[in-house]
Amino acid sequence: MIQFDQVTKRYSGGVEALKNLSFSIDSGEMVFLAGHSGAGKSTLLKLISGLERATSGSVMVSGHNLSKLRGSQLPFVRQHIGVVFQDHKILFDRNVFDNVMLPLDIIGFDRREAARRVRAALDKVGLLGKEKVMPIRLSGGEQQRLCIARAVVHRPAILIADEPSANLDRAYALDIMELFKSFHQVGVTVLISAHDETLMEDYGRRILRLKEGQFTA
């Protein structure tokens, strides 16, 4: 599903965020990505969702070599990936329902079918009763759930979450993790990054540990 082959990412200014990384994630797998801030976790996730391009090496996602795709084709790759952003990227000028509707608008769903899917996604994350609420009225955990609902509403094959449990207390973080596990159980490939490893160890899944742009044992 996801395959990195000797991938290096160097930002302008010479900083090497990723050094010669190779790994693969199978379809339907749930994998954690661990490491301190600045270890390269976010860069790795951005390479998968086509928000950054590798300096060298190849990044394969769902059979597409992202390094070889033209810039105008990257949006279509992104449409098949669900991303939970570290800073949520919620739009505060519209209510919960319309926030979750956005990906379906982009893909161009029929309105009625789209509304049905939005409600299903909100139901899944436990926000069904708040579809008319403006996001500013939601708690931090609820905003996180809103972001997850938006990431899964178009039923992507790959779900990526960048530090979804940061800033949440442990009970809430566990709730969120359970949510991701439920998506994994219906066949979605899930990749979650976190700097707190204790949360991951309970799940017995594969953990990729990054340090200064390289994997450690």
Partner: peptide, 16 residues
């Protein structure tokens, strides 16, 4: 601006 940025992040094409 925010809407445009988020839309781009989740796969909106330029023409969209």
């Amino acid at each position: 601006r925010d809407e445009i940025e988020v839309s781009k992040l989740i796969g909106a094409t330029d023409s969209f």
